[in-house]
Write a protein that binds this DNA or RNA. Structure first.
Lengths: 217, 217
DNA sequence: TTGAATATAAGGCAGATGACGTATTTCAAA
DNA sequence: TTTGAAATACGTCATCTGCCTTATATTCAA
């Protein structure tokens, strides 16, 4: 088995250090790297057949958390391990929410890093012990978890649109919804078209997931 | 360094198995054991100079979660690792809330168990990979944390099926998924058919919503 | 009162989806 | 060693979905 991995890291020396750590293992090959999230995503558009990404958090242009979110939406099969110096609660939590599969501190030694990379491809969730502890603490204190997603242009959906979104989320099709709301299927379709335009999405699933994320339904 | 540990386990054979696993390591000594939570707590009243407790969950008289809560209140210095066959969301979450420092499945091999015991005394939070994954999923979906799982016939989805469900939930279509996973669109469709049969649903939306409700994704 | 937004409705088209059936390979458990 | 589950792949067919255009009625704030 040969694992194809990428690295996002803005610091030249740290990048070099990570590469060196991994150079000992011949079941891992570094396909490409990026100095920030945007650069890495650009390269992923060329080739997204990647197993694991090692992602720094603090980077210019686009930070690792935002990048993780975008990558996970488009290429959910790619495992992402945060590899950072920050053990800040906020960073840990945001990374997990963004979809990170693991969270390691940069002090990790080569052998262990390798093991974690393998583990994540097998469906595990590798974490530095101190980070694992943090996740448990976060779970114990759910009140801290409510952190808010700040700025999206708040789109206003109408009552009817929300009603239809909720029915969509139950798995009902156009005919069933039109029957429930006593309107024609054409109208249901028109409403859904409008919802798509407002939310900037192109399918039922995306619409429902986004609405869910924004607590619209 | 010599670690003083206790075991709470009602099944005689499993207790024996654990003892045997640990007998190889001379930096660990088993101080005493209990057939249930209450019995262990009784013995702790005699001697609570203990480093780590390995705690089963399902036990008569007093289960491991209740015992963990009581012990942590009275002897917060004692590290408690749940050692159980259950990977049920509810058990995992309740154990953590009760104050458990780690959560391992009984299938764990001796070497690894030893390592986890050492790790927990150093402030870590040892978890079986599949449990670590669960804690991350719980963190990502805080609203689902308090929600209650009824007893539905637990359907087993394969790793591949879960992977495909996650991609579906991002709004990707068959072709995008097949491209991501490097399999043919036909195969994606077949997997999805199988998922539908297992979950007893008839559309992507229903499948994703159900999987979400059951913390499968 | 008059637009603007909302809700209603229809037709057409290309492509996606769901429900069948069939088949091969691999791998672990019995 | 055999069995069974899982993953892979293809074909067909009816239906559903997403996108486009057009049109009318209603409601509500300016």
């Amino acid at each position: 088995m040969n694992l194809k991995i990428c690295i996002a890291e803005d610091n030249y020396f740290l990048m070099k250090a990570i590469k060196e750590k991994l150079s000992f293992f011949d079941d891992i090959s570094i396909k490409f790297t990026g100095n920030n999230g945007a650069e890495l995503i650009g390269k992923l558009e060329e080739n997204h057949h990647i197993d694991v990404i090692l992602m720094d958090i603090q980077m210019p242009v686009m930070d690792g958390i935002k990048a993780t979110e975008l990558i996970k939406n488009k290429y959910p099969h790619i495992k992402i391990i945060m590899l950072t110096v920050s053990d800040d609660d906020e960073d840990v939590f945001k990374s997990i929410k963004a979809g990170a599969n693991g969270y390691l501190l940069k002090e990790i030694e080569a052998e262990n890093l390798h093991h974690c990379i393998v583990e994540v491809t097998q469906g595990g969730a590798p974490m530095t012990p101190s980070i694992a502890l943090k996740t448990l603490n976060l779970l114990r204190n759910p009140e801290r978890i409510s952190v808010q997603s700040a700025e999206f242009d708040e789109v206003e959906l109408t009552k009817r649109e929300i009603e239809i979104l909720m029915q969509l989320s139950k798995g009902l099709n156009y005919n069933e919804i039109s029957d429930n709301l006593i309107i024609s299927p054409s109208t249901v379709r028109k409403h859904i078209e409008n919802i798509y335009k407002k939310l900037q999405v192109h399918s039922k699933m995306e619409a429902v997931m986004l609405a869910q994320k924004r607590n619209l339904i």
